[in-house]
Design a protein around this nucleic acid. Structure first.
Length: 814
RNA sequence: GGGGCGGUGGCGAAAUGGCAGACGCAGCGGACUUAAAAUCCGCCGGAGUAACCUCCGUGUGGGUUCGACUCCCACCCGCCCUACCA
């Protein structure tokens, strides 16, 4: 028997798998398909332990499904456009392309060392012209559908990355850039957007997908649906001033109006006396960052415009103020303020001495209580007061009745608002897919004809952090002819958000070389949609919303006939450093998978990753802990290579080993089914322990021993694919273990023949009695009552009640 | 402020409302060894006890139940998301 040497046998089997095309995944209509996908990496340079943590359990799951009889597609690729490549170019004078593709080569090699079942012939690389041609084609299709448009607006801009960002890419309470952490600033720019808001309602519908509750909640909050009414106020001069409110029942309590500083009507309505103050306030608001503006703790600021609006429900004149707590980007950028029933309005009214009129009253309050000390905001309790003919109406009913009445009067209507914003996809960077548009002085924004796709990224550009795309300074790229009239025109020099590339990669995997469309429809008809997606929670409101939007848009394009891209989703957690902190080079707590593979072999690393914590939970790495799985594989190697010498067979021991074997087959299958990798490995360890004991005692038959070992190898093969393949071969079994069916378990063999009956008195365990399995409840009860210990507990008392839990437990209530 | 997730031995963790701590790491004792590592055997939540055993124990306090780590309510702590969205 030679020693277990993963460094030698892992590359050997990886080569054999490649040579024999073991993981080539092609259409096979005789089997049910299973499209499994794990989020693709950005080629940052090195595969880190987080990639292993995300990918190797996904691989084990895909392998398990394959053994269960599915034809499994499990592809891999690279999300290879993006800022780090360009930053490397600026810092170290390496071309982004060179940097990216060197990293891809390196990481592909590292991925192969993992021994995953990726079909590399389906590899998709988003920065390949053959890929981004179709990213550009999608852009054009979205334009055709009216789902892409260009708009001048105040957008989020990262001064470090020198580019605009989508709303989803601005994070945290200080509103920083998702990539580099710099607080963003606002800039007025003309940018391309996708109309994700067109699908807001559909995106709230999760009925067709089995996704984690957490992700659904995050997306739901992000989309932020509010139901209420649009109400048209008029200024005294007669300008219409629509507002959105979720509380039309509080209209009678509106004591002032507030407009966002950017509101277009501000200039028009401001009186000459107030003009200076308003102009100063607007200028100050403009200079302020979003952090200042959106800090909820900050005291409310604002300025009176001198103008008044007419409340359509009672014709009262109320002052119009400008304040930055009202945001231009939501609703109409103007609100009616009801200080009695809105915390923000209450704070503002208090600050500026504006009147507070109560129009909703709960049962616990009366006039004797004096003025309100805080806003009363309940939507479910209370009834309307001081509200004309609606006085006395309960709140919930009031909302409906007032809305209907507004509609009747023609001054408002029921309305829904979403917090979701359209997706800003323009980036002022080089290393991305160019937006395929030419600006003609006569025809405006003209899409590049299909025949001219892809719009190639030129290689010879200057990398300077100017805040504008380097493409703008590339004369050859910039100048083009209008596709319609041929007049000298200029190309769009912004590139697309890389989330655009990753919104459709699951389709490109199907046929990465296909050139008649984004994917081969034949492949699509078989494999789509993705059955099981896995990845980190951090993409809940970015990638996972974008890709859902994209699939819905692709449905409009007639490319797919389903509504959701990924039917099931499972999120893994995050591996932390040994110090329980997020891994980072500066903290020096980074775990290097290459070193671990070098030292222990990929199988041990995989097994430990799956064993050390609940997958969705994650947690700190522990270098000592890996010894557990290491010993497991050492033991497996020993039992797989050593000849078992059968001694005197003990029937009971023999049955016990077979029972354990079948119990573990059942357990591991169920655990892998629901991503419970840690308990699956633990169950395999239990089987290992039983086998070792049986070997020590030599008291089981060779057949039972062989069954146990062969089963263990099969159960372990999705987790540790190399060692199991090697031992399978050494045991004279046919290549490959990974093509074997998942072992069957037999309920009769798995069944215990005795049970430990737990006897409780008043819920406390007082005795344990060995009893034959399958004893009727009545007999169990008798057995329990006959127990000496129980008799002592009862001390002659008659039990008040006896509860028998089928075949398991008797609880005697004194 | 709002929403979500979590809190179990020294550590990572297990437990369809039914024996809390499976499985593993570390530790302790022993065997082997000149010695160490590796390996093997045993112990391993706390308190008491020579021992059999007994009592206590799943963040805290209540509740439901014959029975609660598990369900309900309130609170404390940690992490994540969100944050003047009218």
């Amino acid at each position: 028997m030679s020693d277990y040497n993963p460094q030698q046998l892992e590359p050997k089997w990886q080569a054999k798998w490649e040579e024999t095309g073991l993981y080539r995944q092609v259409i096979d209509k005789s089997k049910p398909k299973h499209y499994a996908m794990t989020m693709l990496p950005y080629p940052s340079g090195d595969l880190h332990i987080g990639h292993w943590y995300a990918m190797s359990p996904s691989d084990a799951r895909a392998r398990f499904m394959r053994m269960k009889g599915y034809n499994v597609l499990f592809p891999m690729g690279f999300d290879s456009f993006g800022l780090p490549a360009e930053n490397a170019a600026i810092k170290r004078n390496i071309h982004p392309q060179k940097w990216t593709y060197a990293n891809i080569d390196r990481m592909r090699g590292q991925l192969k060392s993992m021994g995953a079942m990726f079909d590399w012939e389906r590899e998709a690389i988003s920065s390949d012209p053959s890929y981004y041609k179709w990213t550009q084609w999608f852009f054009k299709k979205l334009m055709e559908l009216g789902l892409a448009y260009r708009k001048l607006s105040a957008v989020d801009f990262c001064p470090t990355c020198n580019t605009t960002l989508a709303r989803e890419q601005v994070w945290g309470d200080d509103r920083h850039c998702e990539r580099c952490g710099t607080p963003v600033i606002k800039k007025d720019l003309e940018q391309w957007f996708f109309k994700t808001t067109d699908y807001a309602e559909e995106l709230l519908d999760f009925s067709q997908i089995n996704w984690p509750e957490r992700v659904k909640v995050m997306q739901t909050n992000w989309i932020g649906k509010s139901t209420g009414a649009d109400v048209v106020f008029k200024t005294e001069q007669g300008d219409e001033m629509p507002i959105f409110t979720t509380r039309p029942d509080t209209l009678w309590g509106a004591t002032f109006m507030v407009m966002a500083p950017e509101h277009p009507l501000v200039d028009k309505i401001t009186t000459p006396e107030q003009a200076e103050a308003v102009a100063a306030y607007r200028a100050a608001a403009e200079r302020m960052t979003d952090i200042d503006r959106e800090s909820a703790e900050r005291e409310k600021t604002g300025v009176f415009t001198g103008a008044y609006a007419i409340n359509p429900v009672n014709d009262e004149s109320i002052p119009i103020w400008v304040a930055d707590y009202v945001l231009m980007g939501y609703g109409f950028g103007a609100i009616m303020a009801v200080p009695a029933h809105d915390e923000r309005d209450f704070a503002f009214a208090t600050q500026f001495g504006l009147p507070i009129i109560e129009v909703i009253r709960g049962p616990e309050r009366s006039d004797a209580d004096g003025p309100l000390t805080e806003a009363y905001v309940t939507k479910t309790e209370g009834q309307m007061i001081n509200s004309g003919q609606f006085t006395g109406t309960p709140t919930a009913e009031g909302i409906e009745k007032v809305t209907a009445w507004l509609e009747e009067k023609g001054v408002g209507k029921g309305a829904i608002n979403y917090r979701l914003r359209d997706w800003l996809i323009s980036r002022q960077r080089y290393w991305g897919a160019p937006i395929p548009v030419i600006y003609c002085p006569e025809h405006g924004a003209v899409p590049v004809p299909d025949a001219d796709l892809p719009v190639m990224l030129p290689e010879d550009v200057e990398f300077m952090p100017t805040g504008e795309s380097p493409l703008r300074f590339h004369e050859g790229f910039l100048h083009a002819e209008c596709p319609i009239c041929g007049k000298p025109s200029k190309r769009e020099t912004d590139t697309m958000d890389t989330f655009m590339c990753s919104s459709w990669y699951q389709y490109r995997y199907l046929s990465p070389d296909y050139d008649d469309g984004p994917f081969d429809p034949e492949e699509g008809a078989y494999w789509l949609p993705v059955d099981q997606y896995t990845g980190g929670i951090e993409h809940a409101t970015m990638h996972l919303i974008y890709t859902r939007f994209f699939t819905k848009a692709m449905r409009e394009m007639g490319l797919v006939d389903f509504d959701e891209p990924m039917l099931a989703l499972h999120n893994q957690g995050m591996v932390l450093g040994e110090d329980n902190e997020k891994m980072s080079k500066s903290r020096g707590n980074v775990v290097a998978p290459d070193d671990l593979v070098q030292k222990y072999g990929a199988d041990t690393v995989r097994a430990y990753i799956m064993f050390f914590t609940k997958w969705e939970q994650g947690g700190p790495w522990n270098y000592d802990g890996i010894k557990g799985p290491q010993r497991l594989l050492d033991d497996v190697w020993a039992m797989g290579t050593k000849e078992y010498v059968q001694g005197v067979v003990n029937e009971k021991a023999d049955r016990a080993l077979r029972r354990k074997t079948h119990q573990v087959i059942q357990k591991v299958g169920a655990d892998l089914e629901d991503f419970s990798f840690n308990t699956a490995v633990a169950a395999i360890m239990e089987l290992r322990n039983s086998i070792l004991e049986s070997q020590r005692r030599s008291n089981v038959s060779s057949e039972s021993m062989a069954e146990a070992i062969d089963s263990l190898l099969l159960l372990l093969s999705p987790i540790a694919p190399h060692i199991t393949e090697e031992l399978w071969a050494q045991r004279g079994k046919p290549y490959s273990i990974h093509q074997q069916p998942w072992p069957q378990w037999d309920a009769d063999i798995a069944k215990e023949d005795t049970v430990t009956l737990i006897v409780q008195v008043n819920g406390k365990v007082r005795d344990r009695i060995e009893a034959p399995a399958g004893m009727p409840d009545e007999e169990l009860k008798a057995l329990a009552l006959a127990s000496e210990k129980i008799q002592k507990q009862l001390a002659g008392q008659e039990p008040r009640k006896v509860i028998v839990v089928k075949g398991k437990l008797v609880n005697i209530v004194k």
